[in-house]
Each structure stands twice: as C-alpha cells, then as structure tokens.
C-alpha cells in the first residue's frame, strides 16, 4: 500500500530537493569551464560563486607588491619624476605582529594579482604594447591614446577582444588608484603614473637553508599612463590618513 502524502513527508521531499539542487549547482560552479557551467553560473552568481583553489594545485611562491612612480610639473613647468613608492608595503605597515589586522593589507596585493592575471591572458605582442606608454603627443603637449584606438591596436596584435577589454578596464582602474595615491603621497597635481609588479621569492625547498638567495626576479614594469582623474579633496585626505596611520612616507 502506498503511504499517503502528508505534511512531514512533503517537507522531507522539499528538504531533499533543496540539498540535491544545491549539490548540483555548487558542483557545476566549482567545475572547469563548460557551457553548462556558464548557464548555471549566470543564475548562481554572485551569491553562490566560490572557488577553493587559492593555494592549489600550484602553491603561490612569489611575493608581488604594487609600486608606482608619478610625474608632475614644477613651478617652471618641467616634469618632475618621483622615486618608486611601494603601496603594498604601506598598506601592510600595521599588519606585522597583528592577528586582528585591517583588510587593507590585502587591497593592492590583490589588485596587482588580478591585473597580472589579465595581463597574462594577452599574447606576447599584446604584452609588449601593454608594457609601453599609453600617452601620445598632441600639438605641444601630450594626451592619453584614445580608447578605441588603443583597443584596436591591441586587438590587431592578438585577436582576443574580450581579454583586451578586460585588461584595459583594470588598467584604467590601476591608473586611478595610483593617481589618487600619488596625489596624497606627494601633495602634487599628478600628470602621469606608471606602476610595476615588484617580485621576490624564497629559495626552493631543497635550498631552504642556503644563505645565498636563489632567485633574483625582475620587476614587471608597465608604461606611463596619463592621469585623467578628477579627485575630490576628501578622497585625497582619506588616502593621506591611510599613509599616516600605516607608518607614513617611506
């Protein structure tokens, strides 16, 4: 005899259905890219997006800091070039010895990581363009290369438009981040910025007790970008406060 459906039984079925649905959705979300994943991801995103491969399969071995350099005009109208300033060092100024540290220690580190991730999706020819300046002459002065011209130049070198757009979007963000930071740091009207991924790494496990440093990694330096950002005074003050709270200027 079939057991009649009643409220607890219906609840039990709904409960099982909820679990099975989430198991399916989550497994698809963490699985490699497939057409099914794209469809499920669009529904699950952004609430149930997740990835659990931060330290695997390849463990992170390289420390990547975000450093910038800036240019501004002095009283005579000549361009002044600054020293390199390491934002990551400043943001991590208070995290040493602190088990309950502000999330600030992750910001520039993750920004540079994401930027490098997009840079790595470009072809070798596109990477060369990306490392070059995005500024061109205009009459007696300079101006940023126009968006459409820049996109076309990069697409011509690799034919992967979505990777190009994705990289340029982040490049624009990095320009704004570095410009605001430089304005607060130097107290000048910043005209250009450029940045680099400053990389260091520990010796391999086999050479962990060697006194000699095994790797001398070269920095990944990007070209100059025109600082076309309108910055609110309150934002500059906030950045100046961050620099002050984290140990001041280097």
């Amino acid at each position: 005899m079939k057991r009649p459906l009643n409220k607890p039984r219906i609840m039990g079925m709904l409960s099982a259905l909820a679990v099975v649905t989430y198991v399916f959705v989550s497994l698809v979300v963490v699985s490699p890219n497939t057409p099914v994943r794209a469809a499920v991801f669009s529904v699950a995103s952004p609430y149930y997006t997740q990835k659990w491969n931060v330290f695997a399969p390849s463990i992170m071995k390289v420390n990547t800091d975000f450093s910038f350099q800036a240019q501004w005009r002095d009283a005579n109208g000549s361009l002044v070039k600054s020293e390199w300033v390491n934002i990551t060092d400043i943001e991590q100024g208070n995290s040493l010895g602190n088990w309950a540290t502000s999330r600030i220690h992750k910001q520039s580190l993750n920004a540079m990581g994401a930027y490098q991730g997009r840079y790595n999706k470009l072809t070798a020819a596109q990477k060369k363009i990306a490392r070059d300046t995005f500024i061109e002459r205009s009459g007696n002065g300079f101006q940023p290369i126009g968006n459409s011209e820049l996109i076309q130049k990069l697409v011509d070198a690799g034919n992967n438009r979505s990777s190009v757009i994705s990289f340029l979007r982040y490049d624009y963000m990095m320009m704004r981040y570095a410009t605001i930071f430089a304005t607060a740091y130097f107290g000048e009207d910043i005209e250009r910025v450029r940045w680099k991924a400053e990389r260091t790494r520990a010796n391999d496990f086999e050479h962990r007790f060697d006194a000699e440093q095994q790797f001398k990694l070269s920095d990944l330096v990007f070209g100059w970008r025109q600082s076309n950002v309108t910055i609110d005074g309150a934002v500059v003050n906030e950045y100046a406060g961050v620099i002050e709270r984290n140990g001041g200027k280097q």
């Binding site: 330290f55 399969p57 463990i59 992170m60 420390n63 991590q92 602190n98 992750k106 496990f205």
Partner: peptide, 21 residues
C-alpha cells in the same frame, strides 16, 4: 600540485610576506 605531493607546500606558504603575521 607537485609541492603538495612532495610535502613542501607549507614551506612556501609560510614564506609569503602577505601571510606572515
């Protein structure tokens, strides 16, 4: 991951500046 299987992964994660309290 190679480093996980050979047992050295923890050494590398302990050497990352961002994760050294």
């Amino acid at each position: 991951g190679k480093e996980w299987l050979e047992g050295s992964a923890l050494y590398y994660s302990l050497n990352l500046d961002a994760f050294q309290v």
